[in-house]
């Protein structure tokens, strides 16, 4: 049978619920029989409750905004365009995961052909992950994103078209696009990747969901969710012939 010393050795785990069920039972048996340990446990609960009752005030209302702004000015962020693949983050955003790219001697990877489009509630931000697969490292590729009205890319308010030059690593490159719905919309997000004379384009339907006055969601019918452009098909025809591999 458990003695006081053994009970106290496990008291932290007992309080945090980190004991095996059998050990919990043994501790319970000891507690019922031992008034001293009942008192010790009560004192620990009392200490915890007292410490938790100490008030921690809120900061000045403007503090967080100022602190974030100061940190952003403190130096360059190592926030690459293509963050490392994080298993959990990827799994969490799987519903919005769209894959396309160039693979050696194969057909185009159509990503999720059954993707039902992306619905964003008004004023909500959702992160769309685009996965670009490259058979080898690419330097100086051009990426063009075109957004439908009513949807903004965080950091680019009011811009419908965003272009930038980037390098791609061999394999899968993930691009996160935090999109915020600012107005009712139903349109296509287009992502186009160009390198040398080749290009590939991907389109995904984006729809902004509004709440109507009776509280029910209103959604317009879906068009086909994912479409590949003609350039893309042409490119992959070339690719299949063994020419112009990227």
């Amino acid at each position: 049978m458990m003695n006081c010393q053994e009970f106290l050795a496990q008291l932290d785990e007992y309080m945090t619920g980190e004991l095996e069920p059998r050990a919990v039972d043994a501790a319970g048996v000891h507690l019922r029989a031992c008034a001293d340990c009942q008192q010790r446990l009560a004192r620990r609960h009392e200490l915890r409750a007292s410490l938790r009752s100490q008030i921690a005030p809120s900061p000045r209302p403007e503090f967080f905004g100022q602190a974030l702004a100061l940190a952003r000015q403190s130096g360059p962020a190592r926030f690459s365009l293509w963050p490392r693949l994080a298993g959990a983050a990827l799994a969490a955003s799987l519903a919005l995961w769209i894959g396309f790219g160039w693979l050696p001697g194969t057909q185009m990877q159509p990503g999720s052909g059954k993707l039902a489009g992306i619905v964003i509630a008004l004023h909500e931000t959702r992160t769309v992950q685009l996965a670009f697969t490259a058979e080898q490292a690419l330097t100086g590729a051009m990426l063009h994103i075109r957004l439908p009205d009513g949807v903004e890319l965080q950091g680019f308010p009011g811009q419908r078209e965003i272009h930038w030059r980037t390098d791609l690593a061999r394999g899968v490159n993930m691009l996160s696009l935090p999109l915020t719905a600012v107005a009712a919309a139903d349109g296509m997000l287009r992502a186009r990747l160009e390198h040398a004379a080749r290009s590939t384009e991907f389109t995904v339907q984006l729809r902004v969901r509004e709440l109507v006055t009776n509280g029910a969601d209103t959604e317009r019918p879906l068009r086909s969710a994912v479409q590949h452009s003609s350039e893309q098909h042409e490119f992959f025809k070339d690719s299949d012939n063994g020419a112009n591999h990227v």
Binding site: F64, A71, R72, A77, S176, P178
Partner: peptide
């Protein structure tokens, strides 16, 4: 650059949900 602007936007987005908790910790 796109990466820098996105970094700034995402930095806020990543940190904001945790700032109340962190401030409370820092105060204590």
């Amino acid at each position: 650059s796109f990466a820098a602007r996105r970094a700034q936007a995402q930095f806020d987005q990543l940190l904001r949900p945790h700032l109340d908790h962190l401030y409370r910790l820092a105060y204590r």
